[in-house]
Design a binder for these strands. Structure first.
Lengths: 154, 154
DNA sequence: AATCTTAATGGAAATGGTTTTCATTACCAG
DNA sequence: CTGGTAATGAAAACCATTTCCATTAAGATT
């Protein structure tokens, strides 16, 4: 579970792409691993910075870019105006979920319900679209927008 | 078709929400109506500005906010770093489509294939989620990411 | 271990899309 | 016509993210 540091499950993928393993990157991935989710770059910076004060915000941004490129991290836009990041897959693989976003208060609810049906339909759709448009699909995004119980009362 | 100005199909919805009808708003909505799509705020500004030079960029942003709030316009993030806008519904109603986004060159392909199945599944999902999370869903976003034929060759 | 190549880094400055400010204009209800 | 107030434009502010550049440190080679 919490034994992030001992594993290095991502080292292979990292090295295989010519990236070096650094303390900063280790710390950033650890922060993502340990945290709940929907972290902004600055959230991550502050977590990392408290333990490794010599890791700068610029490195956080650069590392997140790398992680997104490698597919280890997903980048989201939830309507507040900063990017949000969450781990795509851990040592035990991914726990797939999508998001409900409240346009009133920007609260985000993760849900895993209906995911199987969604993903099955998406796979079919992806197959059809790939063929028709000669497009190699690597990822998808589904989000629902609306008002949470608090905000719809007003 | 092109007789945008004569209709004012949106005036009702506008006035009903306490908004005034102004030349700038008319021009901005007309630009969205006439254009293809995926316009940025500045795209719209330039189109509008050529015909009505006294409409400023600020007004474009403010009007787009209003239109998005009213549900007349959708706002998208396609990964280049500016918001993209397109008309949600015209006088004849909406022509629903989703997007394929190339992460290589940021090209966006609209597709309407599979939309029916998608929308049906989404409706079911929305119903289930609304109930379970007491969340009033008003909108959804589906996007596929990948590489277009040009970019996957490299 | 020592050396070397070059990716990675941090701090400061720049960037640029979007928002805010504020004095002025112009919808439109009465 | 006229008053109240929403809407506006221009300029300045905002602020998340990127870029610059001199310095550091992975990690392959010796």
């Amino acid at each position: 579970m919490g034994n992030f540091g001992q594993h290095g499950w991502w080292h292979g993928k990292f090295r295989g792409c010519g990236y070096r393993i650094t303390l900063g990157r280790e710390a950033i991935l650890e922060a993502l691993f340990k945290s709940d989710k929907h972290l902004s770059a600055e959230d991550i910076y502050m977590k990392v910075h408290s333990k490794y004060p010599n890791v700068g915000l610029t490195t956080v941004y650069r590392t997140l870019d790398v992680l997104v490129d490698l597919g280890l991290v997903f980048k989201f836009d939830f309507g507040d105006k900063r990017a949000r990041y969450e781990l795509a897959e851990g040592p035990k693989g991914a726990h797939h979920h999508h998001h409900l976003i409240c346009t009133g208060c920007n609260r985000v609810i993760d849900y895993t319900d209906f995911i199987d049906e969604e993903v099955e339909l998406l796979n079919q759709t992806e197959k059809g679209l790939s063929k028709k448009y000669d497009f190699k699909i690597t990822n998808h995004l589904i989000q629902f927008y609306g008002l949470c119980s608090n905000c719809s009362e007003k």
